[in-house]
Computed example of a mutant assay.
Amino acid sequence: MNFHKFGKSFVYATQGVLQAVKTEQNFRLHLLAAGIVSLAGIFTGLSKWEWIIVVMLIFGMFMIELVNTAIERVVDLVSPDYHLLAQQAKDIAAGACLVYAICTVIIGLIIFIPKWSVILF
């Protein structure tokens, strides 16, 4: 195993995440949402298993946004001019992000609403 190459792979991966943070508005929006959800979790006293679910949802959203961004960049590279299939590929990748985001909201509501109802009532 080449430890130098292994170490550089972490550098490249970090550069990829930072590039997404700098250039992708949706990624920054998800970072903000993750911060808000994390604060809400702290203030509502999530259980260990609830935190595990929330962390998996948050990082799952980050991962799918990164994959979506990579797909968009590759499509732009291989198809700089408009092409229907290129547009469909980008739309489908964005759709995957939307579906996962809806899933995270539903699960988040399932976790948080019972806790908020105890606090409010």
Rank of each mutant, 00 (worst) to 15 (best):
M56Q: 10
I110W: 14
F43G: 10
G7S: 09
E72F: 10
F112W: 07
A93N: 03
W49V: 00
V11N: 07
R73W: 04
Q87V: 00
W49K: 07
Q88T: 04
I42C: 10
G7P: 00
A20H: 01
I53C: 09
E72N: 15
A13Y: 13
F43T: 11
G60L: 04
L77W: 09
V11Y: 10
A86E: 02
K115G: 00
K115I: 00
I111V: 13
F112S: 02
H4D: 14
M56K: 09
A86C: 04
K8L: 13
L120Y: 09
Y12G: 09
D76I: 00
G16H: 09
V67Q: 13
L109Y: 08
G108N: 07
N68G: 11
G108E: 05
A93G: 06
G16D: 15
H4G: 05
C103H: 14
T23Q: 14
A20I: 03
A89Q: 03
I58T: 05
A13G: 14
I64K: 00
N26R: 11
G41R: 01
L120K: 06
I58Q: 01
I102L: 15
V105Q: 13
L66E: 04
L31C: 10
T14E: 12
W51Q: 02
V67W: 13
F62Y: 12
L57K: 01
N2H: 10
M61P: 00
V21H: 04
V118T: 12
G95N: 02
I110S: 07
Y100L: 10
K48L: 06
I58M: 06
M56T: 07
I36V: 15
L31A: 05
I110L: 15
K5F: 07
L18G: 02
M63S: 09
N68S: 15
Q19G: 13
E72W: 09
A94V: 00
V105N: 13
F59H: 04
L77E: 12
K8W: 08
L29R: 12
K8M: 13
E24P: 00
M63K: 08
K48N: 05
V17L: 13
Y82N: 10
V99S: 06
L32E: 08
A34W: 04
I58V: 12
A93L: 04
